[in-house]
Amino acid sequence: MNDIWLVLGGTLTGAVGPGISVLYATYGELITERAGRINLGIEGSMLMGACFGFIATVETGSVTLGVLSGMVGGSLLSLVLAYLVIYRNTNQLATGFALTLFGAGITAYAGRTYVDSTINGLNPITVPILSEIPKLGIALFEQDVLAYIAYILGPVLFLGLHYTRTGLSLKAVGESISVAYAAGRNPYMIQIVAIAMGGALAGLGGAQLSLGFTHTWSEGMTVGRGFVAVGLVIFAMWSPLRAMVGAFLFGGAIGLQLQLQTIGAPVSPFILDMLPYLIIIFVMSLWSRAAARAMPEGLKGVLRATT
């Protein structure tokens, strides 16, 4: 019984820790896809955020500047994607993937002398009353400031998308560019802004990873978490609230497999290692029909390649 509580508590702690960075990237990809574009360069944007956030923190000593640089780095990379796919009409999937590889290369180069740098970083802030909730409290309310922002950002994005003019414009562009244009919007500008914001959020996720969660820069440290975010957007059916569930589920699965190892569960760690991805694949296969219905119209051309 004790073990079960230990595992559950640990899974929750694990859910939030590694989950936050994925959550930011998921928000970012979600905004991009709501505007009718898909950005596979999100992994590269996360790396840019992690790397340049770390470098800026080392150089200036200010975490705030670090976080901002991470956001700028992430959005710069996604702006390249915006230019290529919107002006040059390149294939979105190929362009995004190429930018991920590009981001990995440039961060490996730029960050190589910072691998052993020590930073003060973002430290956990304990929320007074909430952190005393048994089991849940420590997991959820003893985190760095970016985690709290991520909690709030989900509902904010949800309200923003569905109840503000800007959100409605964004969704309209994602559904049909010509209709949005006819309604007096500037659809490509909206897409560019959405892609840039998406990159900035992914960069923020990367910065949380390097500045908050690990206090370390290391080459390729996101290890595919950006691609996980792309999957999570489909999993979340383009809803920010479900994105939170998805990201924490993914983080929780990482936490769970390490917890199971600490109690000596009779399962091979190699199989446990697949758990986070298996869970995502499983849920996605369950929801595939519903997800297809929820998909913004503008994405269908890209994902199904029927035009």
């Binding site: 230990l6 702690t13 969660f213 690990t214 370390t216 390490l258 917890q259 190892q261 600490t262």
Partner: peptide, 22 residues
């Protein structure tokens, strides 16, 4: 505990947390 990577800082940090919980 195994992390299945020679250097994955995020997983290392999660593993540290799991150890402290234990």
């Amino acid at each position: 505990v195994l992390t299945s990577s020679w250097c994955d800082p995020a997983k290392q940090a999660t593993a540290v947390q799991a150890m402290i919980d234990a």
